[in-house]
Design a protein around this nucleic acid. Sequence first.
DNA 1: ATACCGACCTGTCAGC
DNA 2: TGCTGACAGGTCGGTA
Length: 277
Amino acid sequence: MPELPEVETVARGLSRGIRGDAIASVWIGSKPEPLKSPASEIASTLEGAGILGARRVGKHVVIDLDIALKKRGSRPTRATAQFVVHLGMTGRLLIASAGAEIAPHTHLIARLESGRELRFVDPRRFGRLSVATDEFQAVGAEPLDVGFELFAGLFRKRNTPIKSALLNQKLLSGIGNIYADESLFRAGIRPLRRAGSLTLAQLRRLYDSVQEVLKQAIAAGGSSVSDYVDASGNRGFFQFEHRVYGHEGDPCTACATPIKRIVIAGRSAHYCPKCQK
DNA sequence: ATACCGACCTGTCAGC
DNA sequence: TGCTGACAGGTCGGTA
């Protein structure tokens, strides 16, 4: 499901929806895979915490918590904590009314003071939940904040296919399979091109394409390929703007050549063999 | 150090 | 109808 635009959409929706609310109690399911922090630590951090807001860091949703109230009288040195959620492939963070039916594969429910609930649902359990008191940081650069010089430097002397480099979260945090393919198509670069072999002009086009694709996708509320929905359960619309991803065999929107699908490092890659060099 | 590959999970869909 | 295999927005650890 979620790459940068989808995670950004979820985070914005959460921030709008539950900022200012507080967590009354927490229920955690029995399937342990999604928990990076111990269940007891997640529950104790969340319970009683005020919700300051939510934001995106790479592909992570970070929910900022005010935990000062819980330490009243003990002069806390640090009054904030973070609930960090990675949605994996099929994870959802949903704001639900308390009476709403509980979907299968619901792994965490945070009951809010307002009577609503924040729920984490994840059929494949590739998602990850953790709490942190230190400022959470992505390992790679933010694709929408990085300057061109730094962006270009990430790929210099790299022998790996540019598609793999775009998916490497240690270089850029947030780009996934859809937006890597769409960016490379718009930049006219084949996914198998060695990253280090790109000319400065091609790097510039790739930089511009990445920015453009991500911004357009955020504006469209992300891509709903099968089941992605935002915090309110709404689907995105950017899947209708995909020009290569999921379009194997379809005519290229620019030249009508059939779009090809190949496998690079175990992930499918889609491209136009004529437009992309 | 770098890069590929299978593993981790469940659900869906095409093909037989 | 029902089985099987391929595939899915992501990341990790092991291996070469």
